[in-house]
Design a protein around this nucleic acid. Structure first.
Lengths: 354, 354
DNA sequence: ATTAGCACTCTTTACCTAAGAGTGCTAACA
DNA sequence: TGTTAGCACTCTTAGGTAAAGAGTGCTAAT
């Protein structure tokens, strides 16, 4: 079942030509473009084998062949001929991201813009899940009696606001006390740690402590709840119109619909969140009707070895992988680097205090 | 130059039919669809007049007529046959917006989603410019020496963060003093008022006050700077693919490109910001290459009579105005109402204190 | 003033044919 | 035995023509 050298060679040539032209590829073309010097007739024999094993398909009898999903998968898994991005591109991205200043929100938004422009595809950047990020400060503001806004500031200037309904007797002074307490006890811990700690305290508090303390804990619990509206930065949507002559408009429309349905989108992207390094999902391999002619390439970015966010692009199955894959990879790597630098920076600052 | 009753009648019928079908409209069709009972031949005479005055155009000799930009403008300015949205739709929107709770950011995002789904077009909602909104609270957080995050919370839970570089000698205690001072003196004022006041104080402070005070003022000045990244909520992009048989893909692509270029988009939309009530901009009347086949319908929402934000839709010039216009209008009205309710609510709370 | 009638124009559609691209098979070749 | 030239066959595409259809503009009659 596995392909020998020549079969693979032919398959790769077909994939490359198909990506370039969007048209079925004939034996003549393969014969000319491939490195093995064989006549079209010989190529045809090999192509017949490949077709039998479903690596390639024929739109109709007298047409050339196009790679099947299986064919694409084989091509992608062997990841040959990736372009090496010139060092200056790497430098350009890095400096563009650093220049966004200390606000990581800006950095991520900028990363998405850069990625779409160097890949010429739709780019997605998901903001970090905050489990593993340390927080610096919490603040409660009484919007009106019974209504509090909590503001949680984390490393790198990531902010999470939440509006929380509370007991209407809670006063501004109470809130100051709460926040002082929390800032003193939990500052510098990760959200995950804080949450765990708060839950255990709530259990104990049921019996031992006074009412005010319980209210504080409940307020804290709600504030530190995992953020369910993680943001997704989307850029370069107009690139989907490239080569739209060959594209089914209904399918294009589905992509746009998906991009707006953030929950569905996140469900798809989350699959790649835990994987190490880059992953490539072919729409047709998964059961996504929305992306049947499209491919998602993702790479997580990480903080201290934990994946916290994701960089991806969505493009047609026949996109230029050799350029796009390195771009996604690079962007994720640089983001990781930036996050870790900031983390290091702050860790030094925190250590002496602790 | 102005049209008489019959000419207008014929023009309206042509516009209506063209919107419905997307095809040139012939005299037969007009004769059947219009209320005046005239034969196709008579209609043709009237159509010849209209064509001479450039209200309608002919793609080629033997085709029907399509409304010109001038024709559309005439139709839109007389705004007949607007659908009356059933009261239950109004109720549905209202309750859906109220149910988003006290967080106005959520409310606006939801408004955009609702508008796109009832209009079947791309919807845009611009977050309020904060000049006329009162602020409740300011907070400074020392991210690291020399780097401060300011958090400005306004009426309705609108939050504006800004990261500001400062003198690296400023301490956490200084920041607490600053924020206490600002909160005491300026709470409840509008951003515009605060800014004016701060500027005048800075001038005086140059001579009279100590260094710390000047630093505080400078920090305040930067925090209260008008927010240059006003958000735009965009929804329903996939509706652009409706009737895409008749649509030029290059032009569609330009729309998507424009939607991502927020500064350009805002420049276009800001034109309508100051107008009273609904405005309709035909892409071809303006000098926007990006929107040559599209129309922007906008209506500002207001707080205490001042326009603070904008609700719009972007759709093809031949969209169903009779449905879309009331939808935009209604959404803006409901938003104004909600904002004013919240304002009233808070005003009552603020009054006794002041 | 309105309309029926009609010739005219231009587009659209269908149909046909020829060209072209590519295949698969066979037989010959190294 | 692997490779290749040759060839018949299939299916799509492009081009051209003719018929159909839609709509106009004009004229003459009502």
């Amino acid at each position: 079942m596995t392909l020998d050298q020549r079969q693979a060679d032919v398959l790769f040539t077909i994939v490359r030509c198909y990506i370039q032209s969007g048209q079925p590829v004939g034996s003549r073309t393969v014969s000319r473009k491939s490195s093995l010097n064989l006549s079209p007739a010989s190529i045809r024999n090999i192509m017949a084998d490949l077709a039998e094993d479903h690596y390639i398909e024929q739109p109709h009898t007298s047409a050339g062949r196009i790679p099947s999903t299986k064919g694409f998968r084989f091509y992608l898994d062997s990841k040959l001929d990736m372009e090496i991005l010139p060092a200056e591109v790497e430098e350009k991205i890095k400096s563009a991201l650093i220049s966004t200043g200390p606000d990581l929100t800006q950095t991520l938004s900028q990363a998405s813009k850069l990625l779409s422009s160097i890949s010429n595809q739709i780019s997605l950047v998901i903001t970090p899940s905050q489990h593993n990020i340390r927080w610096k400060h919490i603040d409660f503001i009484l919007l009106r009696p019974g209504l509090v806004m909590s503001i949680l500031v984390m490393e790198g200037g990531i902010v999470q606001n939440k509006i929380i309904t509370v007991d209407s007797e809670i006063t501004v002074d109470d809130l100051v006390k709460f926040s002082n307490y929390l800032n003193e006890h939990y500052q510098g811990k990760t959200l995950l740690q804080v949450r765990a700690n708060i839950f255990s305290q709530i259990k104990r508090a049921r019996k031992r402590f006074n009412n005010l303390y319980q209210k504080a804990l409940n307020l804290a619990r709600e504030s530190f709840e995992p953020d369910n509206n993680r943001q997704v930065y989307v850029d370069g949507t107009h690139y989907l119109f490239q080569d739209s002559e060959f594209t089914d408009l209904t399918k294009m429309r589905e992509v746009f619909r998906l991009l707006e349905e953030r929950s569905k989108l996140l469900k798809i992207l989350d699959q790649t969140m835990e994987s190490e390094g880059l992953s490539i999902l072919l729409g047709q391999e998964q059961d996504w009707q929305e992306l049947s002619d499209y491919t998602v390439i993702s790479s997580p970015y990480s903080l201290k070895g934990d994946n916290i966010g994701l960089v991806s692009i969505i493009g047609p199955t026949r996109m230029n992988y050799s350029r796009v894959i390195p771009a996604v990879d690079l962007t994720a790597r640089i983001l990781s680097q930036l996050f870790n630098e900031i983390f290091e920076h702050n860790a030094e600052k925190n250590m002496p205090k602790a």
